[in-house]
Design a protein around this nucleic acid. Structure first.
Lengths: 109, 109
DNA sequence: TCCTCATATGATTACTTGCTCATATGTTCA
DNA sequence: TGAACATATGAGCAAGTAATCATATGAGGA
């Protein structure tokens, strides 16, 4: 810890959001940190899709997709509605798109 | 795979970014998906800090912080400069702030 | 009611990851 | 040159996680 940082640290501690909020923020980005989930969200950009369409699109098992959809739903990033035997998923709100868009800008600079 | 999705899938496949790009996007968000790294980036909001100041701020070992700084640097999210014995880290660009800001909006809605 | 289709879910496993410990590198000063 | 300080880095371990497999739930049609 060497030399003295107390002034700087006091200032920063004062400006930083609460630990719990930063934890939630990390948890949110963790959801975006998986290629399968990113693909699912991107697929839903244009509108709702049923589970079997998503699994066909990504060429993955229905089970794998279902598990990921549950993760996304628990995080309030997607919503679902039932229509007969099928269940249709869609993006919960516009934040999903804007978060992905910001990430995209950093990648493609 | 049941019923026919070929029309929908054809359209979506056409609009989706390349797999490699989506992979990079996931990798980027993965970096943001850890509370320690989020805290480090937030700490650097106001300007550069040396490693020992960060580790004192977060109350973590110098080694743990160094490892995370390496991760952040490899992802081009932070830069460093040496000044004598100390090495000062700062945010690489404004994208870091805007990505975090977007995430924040979703959390605090 | 029984069968089939669409989806959900629990358990298991292979892989990833963040921290720790020990040690290496690099800088300043006497 | 050697000692002290600041930081980096490699190995190892414990915790977390994404896919798989088997099975459960739930809806529609014969």
């Amino acid at each position: 810890m060497a030399h003295d940082h107390s002034e700087l640290l006091k200032k920063i501690r004062n400006d930083m959001p609460a630990d719990e909020l930063l934890q939630d923020l990390g948890d949110l980005f963790k959801i975006f940190g998986d290629t399968t989930r990113i693909k699912i969200m991107y697929a839903l950009y244009e509108g709702e899709m049923c589970v079997c369409a998503i699994s066909e699109l990504l060429n993955m098992t229905q089970s794998a997709i279902s598990h990921q959809l549950k993760t996304l739903k628990d995080a309030n990033l997607v919503s679902s509605r039932r229509d007969g035997k099928e269940i249709y998923y869609s993006l919960s709100d516009e934040h999903v798109k804007s978060i992905i868009a910001e990430g995209f800008e950093h990648i493609t600079e």
